[in-house]
Write a protein that binds this DNA or RNA. Structure first.
Length: 634
RNA sequence: GCCGGCUUAGCUCAGCUGGUAGAGCAGCGGCUUUGUAAGCCGUUGGUCGGCGGUUCGAAUCCGUCAGCCGGCACCA
């Protein structure tokens, strides 16, 4: 006589064991139809799950977040089912739910083509229409291994074989298709109506580049058609603000074949760059950093001492001259230590903070390059803090606060924190790693932040905090970093004289806020969709004349604006004003000033904002006051 | 680096199964002197990513190299 408590607080008694589906039906026909799964005492189960004792039960529908996940997961199975029907000798592997959809990896003798994708999608719709019941079966592990081996599914058999012996394995069957899965799944394929296959791509078996490459099919799935349409629309919008596309449209930068992974900054892009750089220079200055500049090319022997030659060789560009080998610097830290080493340092000098807009080159794998986001030559807002062990904590706490302020100034409020710990390929003693990892942990705890751990993802010389920001359309970018390094200063002989008059090795903190200038500007472009806030905009205002007789006045307005430090230019072309407005609107200029007879006579400007708002005529003083307050709002 | 796709004028893109290239915008010339998102007419411009091959003939088919795009692996 199970007594079932429902989410609304009511209870229902049943004469005997009852399934989730039956509970749904007892409440109403609509709910029974909508039921995708159940939640029994907080655990997700199939609608066919039988309950024989008192329990809290909720019917999961597409309105629940879990319901959507189940829909997507079942759609991944639907995809695998369709592929097996069309390509019986393809082997299935795994098919998890991801953000906005799912994927499924197959092993097949050739790659799937876009035409295959269309056919598979059609077959999926067909199987959905058949409305096949999805049935859960449980069998002992060894029996499951044998079953999948006999079906020729060697990947699946391998997955099951890695599950501890003696555990029961759940399988799901729909029609002739059977797959290993923890579940739960929708009760029948007919529930899967809104989905779309997005793309095919290669992916390594078990995520290891030493393994064979599988064929991955990505798809998206939703509860309602409108949701999917909205998602596809969002993707289109994201494409429109792609920094590579806007970089061309707004004439900010370009890249070309002769310099893969490198950037040609055009005049407007370079103005944007300088706004960011000068801002960061003030950040250095106002927070106790001294700006320095180290050489680009350093002798091999130095890189051997730092460990780069042994640990970072494949990422370095090397060159040679007169029987000496050199590497173009991939990092700025050694240079800063060499500067530190010139002169005797006292404990009274610590913490000593150096900052550099350090130009680095790394020979990234060709497949990793991606516009400004992943390049081979980049500039870091790179700082190194030489300090004592006791100073690590306060420095990390202060840095985190500083980073938050900088991100806010650029318009990013959402920051994600991760601590990356020791990797297998590393230098330094385990005790040193232990201390360093502890310090980072404590710093974030003191800053009262929630963070996650990334085991094994630290740099080879030390663990790090990774600071990521979320942009305007929800994408996450890692930019900032704070790395504790107990090794490098010792390797390069850095020391300071302590209060005990003895020599000690300082700890070095590697830190960056925006990370790579290139990447950060790419993020800014996409975050603002090219419509930069006034203080960043390459050009802040354009002055347009109505006809030739206003040209001289327009130029005088531009001159006055520029003398006040604003970035303005005149557009005196022989075109209609609406034509000019259109062009500058597409260029996303913050302000467009129109000058004709009325304005000229009154020494005014007619102001139009980027949003298309007509602010009417005003004096230049009134306009520049507006600019000034807006530019300082940052 | 790996898997797949793509590469045609400054930009965005047509060009079916092979018969030596086309549009819009931009540019240039002229007309127009213009009041808040495209005025009119004319016109220049490409050894179709590079190299090789098949063919009477290649932007189109094949091979190869490069770059880019989407993933994977790697990473600021």
């Amino acid at each position: 006589m199970p007594n079932i408590r429902l989410p609304d607080g009511s209870s229902k008694s049943f004469p005997g064991p009852v399934t989730v589906a039956e509970i749904g039906a007892s409440i109403g026909a609509g709910l029974a139809r909508a039921a995708l799964a159940g939640k029994v005492n907080g655990k997700l189960v199939d609608t066919s799950h039988r309950i024989d004792a008192d329990a809290d039960v909720a019917i999961v529908t597409e309105r629940d977040p879990e319901g959507l996940e189940i829909l997507r997961h079942s759609t991944a199975h639907l995809l695998a089912h369709a592929v097996k029907e069309l390509f019986p000798d393809a082997q299935v592997t795994i098919g998890p739910v991801i953000e906005n959809g799912f994927y499924y990896d197959f092993s097949y003798k050739r790659a799937f083509t876009p035409e295959d994708l269309a056919a598979i999608e059609k077959k999926m719709a067909e199987i959905s229409k058949r409305d096949l019941p999805v049935a859960r079966k449980v069998m002992p592990r060894d029996q499951a291994v044998a079953l999948f081996s006999s079906m020729g599914e060697k990947y699946k058999a391998e997955i099951i074989a890695s599950i501890p012996e003696g555990e029961a394995i759940s399988l799901y069957a729909q029609g002739d298709f059977i797959d290993l899965c923890r579940g739960p799944h929708v009760p029948s394929t007919g529930k899967l109506k809104v989905f779309k296959l997005m793309r095919v791509a290669g992916a390594y078996w078990r995520g290891d580049s030493k393994n064979e490459m599988l064929q991955r099919i990505y798809g998206t799935a939703w509860a309602r058609k409108e949701d999917q349409d909205a998602y596809l629309k969002m993707l289109e919008e994201a494409e429109k603000r792609d920094h590579r596309r806007l970089g061309t449209q707004l004439d900010l930068f370009h890249q070309q074949e002769e310099a893969p992974g490198l950037v040609f900054w055009h005049p407007k892009g370079w103005v944007l760059w300088q706004q960011v750089e000068q801002y960061m220079r003030r950040v250095y200055r106002d927070n106790g950093y001294q700006e320095v500049r180290a050489p680009q090319i350093l002798d091999r022997s130095l890189w051997e001492r730092t460990g780069h030659w042994q640990n970072f060789r494949e990422s370095m560009f090397v060159t040679s001259s007169e029987n000496r080998d050199y590497a173009i610097k991939p990092m700025n830290c050694p240079g800063h230590i060499l500067i530190y080493n010139k002169g005797v340092r006292s404990y009274r000098d610590l913490p000593l903070r150096y900052g550099e807009f350090g130009s680095c080159h790394r020979n990234e794998p060709s497949g990793a390059l991606h516009g400004l986001m992943r390049v081979r030559g980049f500039v870091q807002d790179d700082g190194h803090i030489f300090c004592t062990e006791e100073q690590i904590l306060p420095e990390c706490v202060a840095f985190t606060a500083l980073l938050q302020k900088v991100y806010r100034d650029f318009g990013f409020t959402d920051v994600i924190y991760r601590i990356a710990t020791r990797p297998t390929k590393r230098i330094g003693s385990d005790e040193a790693w232990e201390k360093a990892e502890k310090a980072l942990l404590k710093a974030l705890e003191m800053s009262k932040l929630t963070f996650s751990l990334a085991p094994g993802e630290g740099a080879f010389y030390g663990p790090k905090i990774e600071y990521s920001l979320k942009d305007g359309i929800g994408r996450v970018w890692q930019c900032g970093t704070m790395q504790v390094d107990f090794s490098m200063p010792g390797r390069l002989g850095a020391e300071y004289v302590g209060g005990d008059n003895a020599r000690h090795t300082p700890v070095m903190l590697h830190r960056a806020i925006i990370g790579s200038m290139e990447r950060f500007i790419g993020i800014l472009i996409e975050h603002y969709a090219g419509a930069f806030p006034l203080w960043l905009a390459p050009q802040q205002a354009v002055v347009m004349n109505i006809t030739e007789r206003h040209a001289a006045y327009a130029e005088s307005v531009v001159k006055r604006l520029m003398q006040l430090g604003f970035r303005a230019a005149a557009d005196l072309r022989n075109e209609k004003i609406s034509y000019k407005i259109r062009e500058h609107s597409l260029q996303k200029l913050p302000y467009q000033l129109v000058v004709g007879d009325k304005e000229m006579q009154a020494d005014m400007v007619a102001v139009r904002t980027r949003g298309g708002e007509d602010l009417g005529a005003m004096s230049l003083d009134a306009f520049t006051a507006r600019l000034r307050s807006e530019a300082n709002a940052q």
